[in-house]
Design a binder for these strands. Structure first.
Lengths: 119, 119
DNA sequence: TATATATTTAAGCAAGTGTTTAATTATACT
DNA sequence: AGTATAATTAAACACTTGCTTAAATATATA
């Protein structure tokens, strides 16, 4: 957006120029965080991570538990792998996945807390 | 997916039937959580929540800080409102938004921690 | 080496998401 | 009342996402 049109948004009182200037840089701190949340923003992936927090599973187990096709699960696992949220080890024909670290489980727990207070 | 095709996924070793049966119900616990994460899974919304965690802002302030149009911001605020993540109060022509509760800020903090350890 | 199986990859498609522009609503001021 | 302004809503569009089917890899076994 241009400087011009931005100023046009609110002519009189708003924007509270001091505030605005102060915070323009601050927001950069959270840039990129949403990528992590987006990974969790799919029910299948949340479930996968939740499961992997308990123990390791092969792709086929996950597909069966979540009632989805192998390619679909594999697709999600690839995304989670790219984001380094899960790790995998091969054992013969099968590939076992597990959580890369426990931060994610903490995120899920936190979200659950929020949810429980909603009611 | 049908029972048939599901069984076809892995014929021999997999699925580990006991595991699978045990976890099929467990995953229901996180159903719905992804909705919350999806709300955070957009950079604009994460930024909005991050800002509102500091102090209240009118729609126009947010639009200016985030360099976006009013309708775009309003659109995101509506979603956050529907999810009860933010609350608002009217003061004259302006509407001021603030965080509905602090759980969300905790989520953001947690995510930031995860991010910092990545490097 | 040939066949079977667990997983991954690729291509195509339907559905969802975020933005824009234009029109509408709500409040304030003259 | 009439005009101006902050915010919301609606419609349209481009873009992304997640699934499906089909083909390709990788490992194990006969």
């Amino acid at each position: 957006m241009s400087e011009k049109s931005r100023r046009d948004l609110c002519d009189t009182y708003c924007p509270h120029e001091d505030k605005v200037a102060r915070y323009k840089d601050r927001v950069l701190e959270v840039a990129g965080l949403s990528e992590l949340f987006r990974a969790l923003g799919d029910e299948t992936r949340t479930k996968i991570l939740y499961l992997l927090a308990e123990e390791e599973f092969c792709v086929c187990d996950l597909a069966t538990i979540l009632d989805m096709s192998l390619p679909a699960i594999s697709h999600h696992l690839r995304l989670l792998r790219t984001m380094r949220l899960v790790k995998h080890r091969r054992e013969g024909r099968m590939v076992y996945y597990s959580l890369a670290d426990s931060h994610i489980l903490e995120l899920i727990r936190q979200a659950q807390e929020h949810f429980e207070e909603e009611r």
